[in-house]
Design a protein around this nucleic acid. Sequence first.
RNA 1: GGGCGAAUAGCUCAGCCUGGUUUAGAGCGCCUGCCUUACAAGCAGGAGGUCGGGGGUUCGAAUCCCUCUUCGCCCACCA
Length: 893
Amino acid sequence: MARQQELDSRYDPAGLEPALYDRWQKRGYFHVSAADAQVPYVVDIPPPNVTAALHMGHGLNNTLQDVLIRWRRMVGDAALWVPGTDHAGIATQNVVERQLAEDGLRRWDLGRDSFVDKVWQWVETYGSRIIEQLKLMGCSCDWERTRFTLDEGLSRAVREVFVRLYEKDLVYRANYIVNWCPRCGTTLSNEEAEHREHGGNLYHIRYPVVGSDRESLVVATTRPETMLGDTAVAVHPADARYAGLVGKELRLPLTERTIPVVADPAVDREFGTGAVKVTPAHDPNDFEIAGRHDLPKIDIMNDDATLSDAVPEAYRGLDRFEARKRVVADLEAGGLLVDTEEHIHSVGHCYRCGTVVEPRLSLQWFVSMRPLAEPALAAYGNGELRFHPEHFGSTYAHWLEHVRDWPISRQLWWGHRIPVWYCQTEKCGATVVLRDDPECCPECGGDLIQDPDVLDTWFSSWLWPFSTLGWPDQTEDLEVFYPTATLITAADILFFWVARMVMAGLEFMGELPFTDVVINGTVRDHLGRRMSKSLGNGIDPVEVIDRFGADAMRFTLVNSAPIGTDLFLNYQDLDATFRVGRNFANKIWNAARFALPLLDESDAAVDLEALELELADRWILSRLHTATREATASMERFRFDEAAEAAYQFVWSEFADWYLELIKPRMRGDRGEASRAAAAATLWHLLDGWLRLLHPAMPFITEELATRLPGRSDEFTLMLGPWPAPPETWSDPAAERQMAALQELIGTVRNLRAEYNVQPGTRVDVHVASASDALRDALLAEGEGVRILARVEELVESAAATDGDPGAHAVLRSGGELFMPLSAVIDLEKERRRLHSELQRVQQLLEATRTKLANEKFLGNAPPEVVQREREKESSLQEQYSRLSEKRGALGE
RNA sequence: GGGCGAAUAGCUCAGCCUGGUUUAGAGCGCCUGCCUUACAAGCAGGAGGUCGGGGGUUCGAAUCCCUCUUCGCCCACCA
């Protein structure tokens, strides 16, 4: 049979992974249908942008989702992972616009329809790249359910939601200051404007009082060019300095206009000069002030941030930054620039192209957020919505408490068209909001024009948990799979996406879209910088998979990234970065390479309870029982790193380092057939157990090896479980105590051998005296293990651990002492020093323990078992102490 | 300005919520010795930590409280 062929000593993932993935997919393991779903467990992928190529952030995020979903699938849930991509309005439009630019074209040259066609073509050609890359990682998404935020079904959901919100007055159209990206030519929400510290200047400008040669007022601003749009200057009503000026007119420099001085409590008397120039069309504060004082609002900019015809001719058509220089120069020339001081302030930048955004008065559609935020806040407050780590809940709540209305219209062509039509008939002028495209105005039958704008991309992603299941239709999928269970995502879209999904779920479904939100860390380079294309410090997951295998990458990521903690990866040394996972995969491979040929089909069927299990067997089963319990408990708390660590430690440090070594003689038949059979059956069940334990993190190698276990049919898979649940009877504290004593003994012998440079090939004699019961039992069962693992010739149990030869002494914490005659190599002076320092260490511990036990308050207040433990510690230390000092005495001071 | 978080071995982190079982752990790195027929991507041994500083609570503090210092992240209408 093919699977019996010999395995290479180096694991070659590239030769196995694609075929395994293909097999899973062909057998339909990833697909879940509502009809068969008993206990659903649903995870929604955070849809990557359709323009995206897989980066390590996706690598981490999707690995964690796959670990979770594979685990739940093994546990027996109908585990559904819904995949898809996001149409990413601005980002995608930018990509295609850049392409056009190479041919010297702009989108207006094509016209709206053919431009949108062009974007669709791009999406069809390149849009599935990231999906294919997720498959390389092993992601077990239900690909039959792959959705796109701009596909037909989701478009219906978007439109339904817009109409419902409009009907409830939760969506409205208004003139307000929004963030405007002059490069992308569109509005942005607050979340889409990234604020960065920026070193600029604070310009102090003099505005003369009309009709006075002497009186003037000095204002301070960081954006002097906006003065051309000033319609007032505001001072604080209680500011004595300016009390006499309120109500007077000022001459606005560089223009022919005059503007009033108004008093408004919003002014901070301490800042700058205490007088604020009011530019209502370009500053949110000023907009508010203008409202209170009925001031005109002059928009001085064109869409591309050049100055408009609203400013004096000299400045028209200048770019805003060019205009800034010109205005400053002209003011200076006119003697009106009083002062220029350096000033650090934060400036908004477009999150897609990095251009400085301009606050600008604009007519946009908004979603009224307060009514939606209240229930979202309440769901967190009452504990229904949980965050992991918990503290992200505070961030979530803080945002909701201060949430502002959401501008949702975007002046783009790529996206969901706003379902609003304006009647062109003058006397009607109706605004029509409809689920279906109208032919003519339902009010008057006149011509309609649809709003030219599209909706913010997030206006479709916030519906993801139910729109992907068929909503607004009442589908069976929706019935069975909503709400989903857990969302795993990065912190940077907590507001963009997570909070808004909660709002949408509660508003439109009446139920939270998920109950647990797991926040994974940010992937950074070894210098702590966010990985980015421009810095060139990214790591390509596809390259990592090619070189080390998907399992190695996944394990490394899972193991080294506790949720919520940033992950630092060195992009300059991938070898070092992914060594943990690669080496572990290789270790697993080789352990199996050793074990598999020792087994046959009969080992699978054997009931372990019916066998004469030996110490090592009982011990390792007990350890597997513990490791499995720990891993399971960790998974339940989304502590994927802990689960991986528990499995790693078990497989490497216990199964491979100890168990496999201990059973080698038994597997050769040295202790008879019964012993061999017991070890073989135990081994079979161990492999089966820990391969399952590791399957969520390392699906490929575990599946491959589990399938090669004798007795497995070609139909076998780990994917469908069961998740291991070792019986309570495997727990064996006595065996654990005995093995611990044995391990200490072997460790001590190895240590002494190294101390005295005993050659590895040299066998030594070891005398053991005063052994504890556990050690005595262990030696009885596994004396041979000691001989092999510690390279011992004669293992002598005697009352006095010495035969008169010079040698090395040691005392065991678990009880007992040992003596190694080393006449050939012993250095008595060294042995004295060694015993002395050992003695000092024990003495210190002993004194600390005695001080504690001498404290009556301790005896009176501490729980009895703590006192008891302390007493046992004292007697053990006392025992060690007296034996050590005896030995040292024997060697002379 | 507001919010959240971090500080434990050279590096990356567990442990802290629920104080006393570790005589503070892991991985990587480092040192020493080994190609011991599953694995040199390995095996064995070892060095390395006043748990950021100070105070407090307690019989007992890496763990709870206060404070200081230093870093990080997020939010904000800092004219």
